[in-house]
Write a protein that binds this DNA or RNA. Structure first.
Lengths: 215, 215
DNA sequence: TGCCACTGAATGAACGTATAGTCAACAAAA
DNA sequence: TTTTGTTGACTATACGTTCATTCAGTGGCA
C-alpha cells in the first residue's frame, strides 16, 4: 500500500526481523490514533502492507504482539533515561537535571510513545504482564532517582516527613502526570514549564536546584 | 444473583433510576477489575443481576453506557473539588490545601474511580467525546486553581519563567500523576506524601505553603 | 558455475467465537 | 386497560486464529 519496496538485498533473517519491527511500529501508531481497542490484527497487517495471517505468524497471539509492543517502548525509554544518568563524571545535580529534561522533551516525550504508556496503564490493573512491567519499571526508575539524590545528600524536608524515597517516588509521579497532560491537553503545559515545575519541587528539598540556568 | 431485593415500595420512576445507577456502578467496578476492554454488556447485566437486554434499554448503545459512566465519575469528582474551594470565608491558602487533600485522599482518590479516569484517558485520544470531557474538566480545574492562586498573589517565580497559569497546570498534572502512581504502584506513594509533594512544589512560588500543619 | 531440492516467510480463504444490538412477549404498575 | 420496565432468544458481524498453499531465497551437489 504505502510504497515501501524493500527489495534491497536483505538476508532472510534480516527481512524477518524488519517485518517484526514494522508490525510493532504499526501497532504503536494504531494505539496512538485509535487507542488500544482500535488495534485489530487485520488493521495492523493492512497498514504494514502485509497479509492477514502475518501477525499470528510472527507473534503467536494478539496478546503477545501487544506485550512485545509495550516492551519495545519500555526498553527505548529505559535506555534513554539510564543514559542520561550514566556519566559519573558529572555532578549528581547536573545528571538529575539532564534526566528530567530527557524525560519531558522529545523524542522520549513523543505523542505516540506517551499514548502507548497511557494505553497500557489503563489496562494494567487487569493484565498481569502489563502491570508487572509497569511496576518493575517504576521501581527501577525510582531507585535510580533515589540513588542520585542520595549522592547529593539527605533532603531538607522541613516538617514534611518526606524521606529520600518519598521525594523520588513523587518525582516519578510528577513526570507521569506531565505526560498525561501532554496527551489530554496538548500544548497547555510546555515541556519547559514541566521541567521548571520538577525543579521547583526538588528545590524545596535540595536548594541547589533553585537556580537560573537549565542544562 | 447477588441477593439484592429492592421490592421496597418504589415508584416506577424511582426503580428505573435505581437500575440505571446500578448499571453504571457495575460498569465502574468492571473497569477497575478487568479494564475497559473487559466491559461486556452481558457481564454488566449479569453482575447487576439483570437480563441481557437491559443495558440497551437504559442506554441505547454500549458507547452511551460508557460515556455516562465516565460522566458520572467526572461529576462526582467535580462536585468534590468545587466544594473544597467554595467557602469564600476561608483564606485562599487554606482552601487550596483543602482542595489538594480532597483530591489525593479517599473517597475521591479511590481505586475504582482512579481506574476509570486512567481507562478513559487511555482511550481519550481517539474518542472525541472522552477527549472533550477530559480536556474541558482539566481546563475548568486549572482555571479555578489559577483563580485561587491569584487571590494569594503573583507567583515568586525566580527565573523559572512560570506564570500563574503555568503553576496551576503543573499542579493539575502532578495530581494526575499521583493518581497514576496509586494505580500502578499501589502503596508506594502514600497520600500524605503526595500532599506534601504538592505543597513542596507550591512553596517554591508561594512561601506561605512552606509550613508545618496541614488542614 | 549452474541446477535443483528444500526451507520457511508470507498469503488469504475459511472457521469459530464473542458480543453488540433487536424484538416479540410478558407482567406489574399506573 | 394502557403503559412501560424487563426478559431472553435471536441476528448480524467483527475479529482472532488456523492451515493448506505459494514461491523466493538458500545451500548442497554435480
Amino acid at each position: 500500500m504505502a510504497g515501501s519496496e524493500k527489495k534491497t538485498e536483505l538476508t532472510r533473517a534480516e527481512q524477518k526481523k524488519a517485518t517484526r519491527r514494522k508490525l510493532i511500529e504499526t501497532t504503536i501508531a494504531i494505539i496512538a490514533t485509535d487507542g488500544l481497542s482500535g488495534v485489530t490484527l487485520a488493521k495492523v497487517a493492512e497498514l504494514a502492507g502485509l497479509s492477514r495471517g502475518i501477525c499470528n505468524y510472527h507473534f503467536r497471539t494478539k496478546d503477545q504482539l501487544l506485550l512485545e509492543t509495550f516492551q519495545t517502548v519500555y526498553r527505548e525509554h529505559e535506555r534513554a533515561w539510564k543514559n542520561a544518568l550514566a556519566d559519573q563524571r558529572m555532578p549528581p545535580i547536573h545528571r538529575l537535571k539532564r534526566f528530567i529534561r530527557v524525560l519531558l522533551l522529545p523524542p522520549v516525550a513523543d505523542f505516540n510513545k506517551v499514548a502507548v504508556w497511557l494505553a497500557f496503564w489503563g489496562e494494567a490493573t487487569n493484565r498481569r504482564n502489563y502491570l508487572y512491567l509497569c511496576t518493575a519499571m517504576d521501581q527501577d526508575f525510582e531507585n535510580e532517582v533515589a540513588a542520585v539524590l542520595g549522592e547529593i545528600g539527605p533532603p531538607r524536608n522541613g516538617s514534611s516527613g518526606m524521606d529520600l524515597g518519598a521525594v523520588a517516588v513523587a518525582l516519578t509521579g510528577m513526570i507521569d502526570g506531565f505526560w498525561v497532560q501532554y496527551l489530554i491537553a496538548p500544548g497547555r503545559l510546555s515541556p519547559e514549564h514541566a521541567i521548571s515545575a520538577c525543579l521547583a519541587y526538588l528545590s524545596r528539598f535540595y536548594p541547589e536546584f533553585c537556580d537560573t540556568d537549565s542544562a
